[in-house]
Computed example of a mutant assay.
Amino acid sequence: MILTAKAAVAGVMGWPVGHSRSPRLHGWWLDHHGIDGAYIPLAVPPDRITEAIRALPALGLRGANVTVPHKEAALRACDHVDPVARRVGAVNTLVVGADGSIEGRNTDGFGFMANLTADRPDWRAASGPAVVLGAGGAARAILVALADAGAPEIRLLNRTASRAEGLAAELGGPIKVIPWEDRAAALAEAALVVNTTTQGMGGQPALDLALDRLPPSALVTDIVYTPLHTPLLTAAAERGNPVVDGLGMLLHQARPGFEAWFGRMPEVTPELRRFVLESL
Rank of each mutant, 00 (worst) to 15 (best):
R120E: 14
G89L: 07
A98Q: 14
A58Q: 11
N65F: 00
A118S: 15
A74E: 01
V66H: 01
A73F: 03
A98I: 09
E103A: 15
A74C: 08
A74S: 10
W123P: 09
E72P: 03
P57E: 00
A98L: 12
G89W: 03
R120T: 13
V95G: 05
R87H: 12
L75S: 03
A118N: 11
R105T: 12
T93L: 11
S127M: 13
H70C: 04
K71G: 08
A73R: 06
F110I: 10
L61N: 02
H70R: 03
H70G: 00
N65Y: 03
L59S: 05
A126G: 14
F110M: 04
D119N: 14
P69C: 05
V88Q: 06
F112M: 11
R76P: 00
R62G: 11
V95N: 05
T67M: 01
N106H: 13
K71L: 08
L61Q: 02
A85H: 06
R87I: 10
V88N: 06
G89Y: 04
A85C: 12
G109P: 07
R105W: 10
G104C: 08
L61V: 08
A98K: 13
V88K: 06
N106D: 14
D79K: 08
T93W: 05
V95M: 06
D119K: 14
R120P: 03
G89P: 05
A118K: 06
N106C: 12
S127A: 15
D99P: 10
A125R: 01
H70M: 05
A126N: 10
G89I: 07
G60S: 07
A118P: 05
V91M: 03
